[in-house]
Protein backbone atom coordinates (compact mmCIF):
# COMPACT_ATOMS: atom_id res chain seq x y z
CA UNK A 1 0.00 0.00 0.00
CA UNK A 2 2.71 2.44 1.14
CA UNK A 3 4.93 1.18 -1.65
CA UNK A 4 2.18 1.76 -4.19
CA UNK A 5 1.73 5.32 -2.91
CA UNK A 6 5.47 5.96 -3.06
CA UNK A 7 5.57 4.61 -6.57
CA UNK A 8 2.66 6.81 -7.59
CA UNK A 9 4.37 9.91 -6.18
CA UNK A 10 7.74 9.06 -7.71
CA UNK A 11 8.28 11.24 -10.77
CA UNK A 12 5.17 13.36 -10.08
CA UNK A 13 7.26 16.07 -8.51
CA UNK A 14 4.88 18.98 -8.80
CA UNK A 15 2.05 16.98 -7.27
CA UNK A 16 4.31 15.75 -4.47
CA UNK A 17 5.54 19.24 -3.61
CA UNK A 18 2.05 20.74 -3.64
CA UNK A 19 0.84 17.93 -1.39
CA UNK A 20 3.56 18.85 1.11
CA UNK A 21 2.96 22.58 0.85
CA UNK A 22 -0.81 22.62 0.96
CA UNK A 23 -1.39 22.37 4.75
CA UNK A 24 1.16 25.03 5.76
CA UNK A 25 -0.01 27.31 2.94
CA UNK A 26 -3.61 26.94 4.02
CA UNK A 27 -2.62 27.82 7.55
CA UNK A 28 -0.50 30.78 6.50
CA UNK A 29 -3.06 31.98 3.97
CA UNK A 30 -6.23 31.80 5.99
CA UNK A 31 -5.30 32.08 9.63
CA UNK A 32 -2.28 34.32 9.38
CA UNK A 33 -2.50 36.54 6.32
CA UNK A 34 -6.29 36.30 6.20
CA UNK A 35 -6.75 37.70 9.67
CA UNK A 36 -4.14 40.35 9.00
CA UNK A 37 -5.99 41.50 5.91
CA UNK A 38 -9.28 41.39 7.75
CA UNK A 39 -7.74 43.72 10.30
CA UNK A 40 -6.30 46.01 7.64
CA UNK A 41 -9.64 46.12 5.85
CA UNK A 42 -11.12 47.46 9.08
CA UNK A 43 -8.95 50.55 8.71
CA UNK A 44 -11.02 51.55 5.68
CA UNK A 45 -14.32 51.09 7.50
CA UNK A 46 -16.26 53.99 8.91
CA UNK A 47 -17.25 54.30 12.54
CA UNK A 48 -20.60 55.55 13.69
CA UNK A 49 -19.78 58.56 15.90
CA UNK A 50 -22.90 58.14 17.96
CA UNK A 51 -23.10 54.39 18.62
CA UNK A 52 -19.31 53.82 18.23
CA UNK A 53 -20.08 50.84 16.02
CA UNK A 54 -18.07 49.89 12.97
CA UNK A 55 -19.99 50.36 9.78
CA UNK A 56 -18.74 48.44 6.70
CA UNK A 57 -18.66 51.53 4.57
CA UNK A 58 -15.39 52.30 2.75
CA UNK A 59 -13.80 55.60 3.77
CA UNK A 60 -10.37 57.19 4.14
CA UNK A 61 -11.54 59.24 7.12
CA UNK A 62 -9.56 57.14 9.61
CA UNK A 63 -6.33 57.74 7.73
CA UNK A 64 -7.14 61.43 7.48
CA UNK A 65 -7.56 61.40 11.23
CA UNK A 66 -4.24 59.57 11.61
CA UNK A 67 -2.19 62.01 9.56
CA UNK A 68 -3.92 65.26 10.50
CA UNK A 69 -4.44 65.04 14.24
CA UNK A 70 -1.21 66.32 15.82
CA UNK A 71 -1.50 63.85 18.72
CA UNK A 72 -1.54 60.89 16.34
CA UNK A 73 1.33 62.24 14.25
CA UNK A 74 3.30 62.72 17.47
CA UNK A 75 2.75 59.10 18.40
CA UNK A 76 4.00 57.88 15.03
CA UNK A 77 7.05 60.17 15.07
CA UNK A 78 7.88 59.27 18.67
CA UNK A 79 7.69 55.56 17.91
CA UNK A 80 9.72 55.83 14.73
CA UNK A 81 12.39 57.95 16.45
CA UNK A 82 12.66 55.37 19.22
CA UNK A 83 12.80 52.49 16.72
CA UNK A 84 15.54 54.19 14.72
CA UNK A 85 17.58 54.99 17.83
CA UNK A 86 17.17 51.46 19.20
CA UNK A 87 18.14 49.92 15.85
CA UNK A 88 21.27 52.04 15.51
CA UNK A 89 22.30 51.35 19.11
CA UNK A 90 21.69 47.61 18.69
CA UNK A 91 23.85 47.62 15.53
CA UNK A 92 26.69 49.42 17.29
CA UNK A 93 26.56 47.25 20.42
CA UNK A 94 26.02 44.00 18.51
CA UNK A 95 28.82 44.38 15.97
CA UNK A 96 31.82 43.80 18.24
CA UNK A 97 30.04 40.96 20.03
CA UNK A 98 29.00 39.26 16.79
CA UNK A 99 32.44 39.82 15.31
CA UNK A 100 34.09 38.22 18.32
CA UNK A 101 31.67 35.27 18.20
CA UNK A 102 32.16 34.73 14.48
CA UNK A 103 35.84 35.37 14.10
CA UNK A 104 37.83 35.11 17.29
CA UNK A 105 36.06 32.85 19.80
CA UNK A 106 37.20 29.24 20.14
CA UNK A 107 34.56 26.51 19.98
CA UNK A 108 33.91 26.59 23.74
CA UNK A 109 33.80 30.35 23.99
CA UNK A 110 31.52 30.48 20.96
CA UNK A 111 29.02 28.06 22.55
CA UNK A 112 29.17 30.10 25.75
CA UNK A 113 28.41 33.30 23.85
CA UNK A 114 25.55 31.79 21.85
CA UNK A 115 23.93 30.49 25.03
CA UNK A 116 24.66 33.78 26.77
CA UNK A 117 23.01 35.79 24.00
CA UNK A 118 19.94 33.57 23.87
CA UNK A 119 19.54 32.88 27.58
CA UNK A 120 17.52 36.05 28.29
CA UNK A 121 15.05 34.97 25.60
CA UNK A 122 14.25 31.82 27.56
CA UNK A 123 12.68 33.75 30.41
CA UNK A 124 9.39 35.59 30.45
CA UNK A 125 9.33 38.87 28.65
CA UNK A 126 7.21 40.51 31.37
CA UNK A 127 9.60 39.42 34.12
CA UNK A 128 12.47 41.07 32.28
CA UNK A 129 10.57 44.31 31.72
CA UNK A 130 9.54 44.59 35.36
CA UNK A 131 13.06 43.65 36.45
CA UNK A 132 14.37 46.51 34.35
CA UNK A 133 11.90 48.90 35.96
CA UNK A 134 13.46 48.05 39.32
CA UNK A 135 16.99 48.21 37.97
CA UNK A 136 16.37 51.68 36.54
CA UNK A 137 14.28 52.98 39.47
CA UNK A 138 15.27 56.09 41.35
CA UNK A 139 16.77 53.97 44.11
CA UNK A 140 17.63 51.09 41.80
CA UNK A 141 20.95 49.42 41.21
CA UNK A 142 21.98 51.70 38.35
CA UNK A 143 21.45 54.85 40.41
CA UNK A 144 23.27 53.15 43.28
CA UNK A 145 26.14 52.24 40.95
CA UNK A 146 26.50 55.84 39.81
CA UNK A 147 26.40 56.98 43.42
CA UNK A 148 29.05 54.48 44.53
CA UNK A 149 31.28 55.59 41.70
CA UNK A 150 30.73 59.19 42.78
CA UNK A 151 29.19 59.92 39.39
CA UNK A 152 25.65 60.83 40.40
CA UNK A 153 26.21 64.15 38.64
CA UNK A 154 26.65 62.31 35.34
CA UNK A 155 23.35 60.50 35.76
CA UNK A 156 21.59 63.68 36.82
CA UNK A 157 23.03 65.50 33.87
CA UNK A 158 21.74 62.79 31.53
CA UNK A 159 18.30 62.89 33.15
CA UNK A 160 18.24 66.67 32.85
CA UNK A 161 18.42 66.38 29.05
CA UNK A 162 15.20 67.73 27.59
CA UNK A 163 12.75 65.22 26.03
CA UNK A 164 14.76 62.05 26.73
CA UNK A 165 15.34 62.82 30.44
CA UNK A 166 12.96 62.62 33.36
CA UNK A 167 12.78 62.25 37.13
CA UNK A 168 14.47 58.82 37.02
CA UNK A 169 15.71 56.37 34.39
CA UNK A 170 12.63 54.18 34.84
CA UNK A 171 10.37 57.09 34.01
CA UNK A 172 12.26 58.58 31.09
CA UNK A 173 12.66 57.82 27.38
CA UNK A 174 16.34 57.22 28.10
CA UNK A 175 15.40 54.29 30.36
CA UNK A 176 12.90 53.00 27.81
CA UNK A 177 15.61 53.15 25.17
CA UNK A 178 17.96 51.11 27.39
CA UNK A 179 15.32 48.44 27.94
CA UNK A 180 14.48 48.26 24.24
CA UNK A 181 18.15 47.87 23.33
CA UNK A 182 18.57 45.15 25.93
CA UNK A 183 15.45 43.30 24.75
CA UNK A 184 16.19 43.26 21.03
CA UNK A 185 19.97 42.92 21.12
CA UNK A 186 19.92 39.12 20.57
CA UNK A 187 17.83 39.64 17.42
CA UNK A 188 20.64 41.81 16.06
CA UNK A 189 23.59 39.73 17.29
CA UNK A 190 22.44 36.39 15.90
CA UNK A 191 21.89 37.31 12.22
CA UNK A 192 24.96 39.53 12.31
CA UNK A 193 27.15 36.75 13.71
CA UNK A 194 25.76 34.38 11.07
CA UNK A 195 26.60 36.85 8.30
CA UNK A 196 30.10 37.50 9.65
CA UNK A 197 30.76 33.80 9.98
CA UNK A 198 30.18 33.40 6.26
CA UNK A 199 32.99 35.86 5.45
CA UNK A 200 36.11 33.76 4.82
CA UNK A 201 39.19 34.86 6.77
CA UNK A 202 41.15 34.86 3.52
CA UNK A 203 39.13 37.87 2.29
CA UNK A 204 40.36 39.92 5.24
CA UNK A 205 43.90 38.72 4.66
CA UNK A 206 43.62 39.54 0.96
CA UNK A 207 42.48 43.04 1.84
CA UNK A 208 45.39 43.58 4.22
CA UNK A 209 47.75 42.01 1.70
CA UNK A 210 46.70 44.58 -0.91
CA UNK A 211 47.55 47.41 1.45
CA UNK A 212 44.31 48.09 3.32
CA UNK A 213 44.65 49.20 6.92
CA UNK A 214 42.26 47.53 9.41
CA UNK A 215 39.81 50.47 9.17
CA UNK A 216 39.76 50.24 5.37
CA UNK A 217 39.27 46.48 5.47
CA UNK A 218 36.35 47.01 7.82
CA UNK A 219 34.72 49.63 5.58
CA UNK A 220 35.42 47.98 2.24
CA UNK A 221 35.09 44.28 3.00
CA UNK A 222 33.63 43.41 6.42
CA UNK A 223 30.82 45.95 6.52
CA UNK A 224 29.47 45.36 2.98
CA UNK A 225 29.53 41.60 3.50
CA UNK A 226 27.87 41.91 6.93
CA UNK A 227 25.17 44.18 5.51
CA UNK A 228 22.60 41.42 4.84
CA UNK A 229 22.96 40.33 8.49
CA UNK A 230 22.76 43.92 9.66
CA UNK A 231 19.67 44.46 7.50
CA UNK A 232 18.00 41.30 8.82
CA UNK A 233 18.80 42.25 12.41
CA UNK A 234 17.60 45.80 11.94
CA UNK A 235 14.28 44.61 10.51
CA UNK A 236 13.82 42.68 13.76
CA UNK A 237 14.84 45.50 16.11
CA UNK A 238 12.97 48.13 14.09
CA UNK A 239 9.70 46.23 13.75
CA UNK A 240 9.78 44.87 17.29
CA UNK A 241 10.19 48.39 18.66
CA UNK A 242 7.47 49.76 16.38
CA UNK A 243 4.96 47.18 17.54
CA UNK A 244 5.78 46.80 21.23
CA UNK A 245 3.26 48.13 23.77
CA UNK A 246 4.45 46.54 27.01
CA UNK A 247 7.83 48.23 27.43
CA UNK A 248 6.44 51.75 26.82
CA UNK A 249 3.66 51.12 29.31
CA UNK A 250 5.92 49.71 32.07
CA UNK A 251 9.10 51.78 31.67
CA UNK A 252 9.50 55.35 30.57
CA UNK A 253 7.71 58.63 30.12
CA UNK A 254 3.94 58.77 29.70
CA UNK A 255 3.93 59.58 25.95
CA UNK A 256 2.02 57.11 23.79
CA UNK A 257 3.57 54.67 21.30
CA UNK A 258 1.97 52.99 18.28
CA UNK A 259 1.60 49.63 20.01
CA UNK A 260 -0.07 51.18 23.05
CA UNK A 261 -2.40 53.09 20.77
CA UNK A 262 -3.41 49.95 18.88
CA UNK A 263 -3.99 48.17 22.16
CA UNK A 264 -6.05 51.01 23.56
CA UNK A 265 -8.07 51.78 20.43
CA UNK A 266 -9.13 48.20 19.81
CA UNK A 267 -9.76 47.61 23.52
CA UNK A 268 -11.05 50.28 25.83
CA UNK A 269 -11.72 52.95 23.20
CA UNK A 270 -13.31 50.48 20.85
CA UNK A 271 -12.20 52.33 17.73
CA UNK A 272 -11.18 49.33 15.63
CA UNK A 273 -10.62 51.30 12.38
CA UNK A 274 -8.14 53.64 14.08
CA UNK A 275 -6.37 50.70 15.73
CA UNK A 276 -6.12 49.04 12.33
CA UNK A 277 -4.84 52.23 10.72
CA UNK A 278 -2.16 52.51 13.41
CA UNK A 279 -1.04 48.94 12.79
CA UNK A 280 -0.67 49.69 9.07
CA UNK A 281 2.03 52.25 9.92
CA UNK A 282 4.75 49.73 10.92
CA UNK A 283 3.96 47.57 7.89
CA UNK A 284 4.36 50.51 5.53
CA UNK A 285 7.52 51.68 7.31
CA UNK A 286 9.15 48.24 7.18
CA UNK A 287 8.22 47.99 3.51
CA UNK A 288 9.84 51.35 2.83
CA UNK A 289 12.87 50.39 4.88
CA UNK A 290 13.39 47.12 3.01
CA UNK A 291 13.02 48.86 -0.35
CA UNK A 292 15.59 51.42 0.70
CA UNK A 293 17.98 48.74 1.99
CA UNK A 294 17.65 46.90 -1.30
CA UNK A 295 18.31 50.07 -3.29
CA UNK A 296 21.43 50.69 -1.23
CA UNK A 297 22.64 47.18 -2.10
CA UNK A 298 22.28 45.63 1.35
CA UNK A 299 21.32 42.31 -0.20
CA UNK A 300 23.81 42.31 -3.08
CA UNK A 301 26.24 40.10 -1.21
CA UNK A 302 23.59 37.42 -0.60
Amino acid sequence: MLRAASRFLHGRNAFYVSLLLLPPLLWLGTVYLGSLFALLAQSFYAIDEFTARVVPELTLATYRQLVTQPANVDIVLRTVAMAVAVTIACGIVAFPVANYMARHAGPKMKAFFYVGVMLPMWTSYLVKVYAWRLILAKQGIVAWGFESAGATAVLEHALATPVVGGPSLSSSYLGMFIVFVYMWLPFMILPLAAALERVPASLLQASADLGARPGQTFRNVVLPLALPGLAAGSVFTFSLTLGDYIIPSVVGAPGYFIGMMVYQQQGTAGNLPLAAAFSVVPIVLIGLYLTLARRLGAFDAL
Binding site: P200, S202, L203, Q205, A206, S207, D209, L210, N220, V221, P224, L225, G297, D300, A301
Partner: peptide, 14 residues
Protein backbone atom coordinates in the same frame (compact mmCIF):
# COMPACT_ATOMS: atom_id res chain seq x y z
CA UNK B 1 55.82 45.17 -0.50
CA UNK B 2 54.56 41.65 -1.08
CA UNK B 3 51.31 40.42 -2.60
CA UNK B 4 49.60 37.08 -2.40
CA UNK B 5 47.48 34.87 -4.64
CA UNK B 6 45.33 32.85 -2.27
CA UNK B 7 44.50 29.20 -2.54
CA UNK B 8 40.74 29.90 -2.63
CA UNK B 9 41.48 33.09 -4.66
CA UNK B 10 39.76 35.19 -1.95
CA UNK B 11 38.04 37.44 -4.51
CA UNK B 12 35.66 39.96 -2.96
CA UNK B 13 32.19 38.67 -3.86
CA UNK B 14 30.51 42.08 -3.62
Amino acid sequence: DVNTVFQDYALFPH
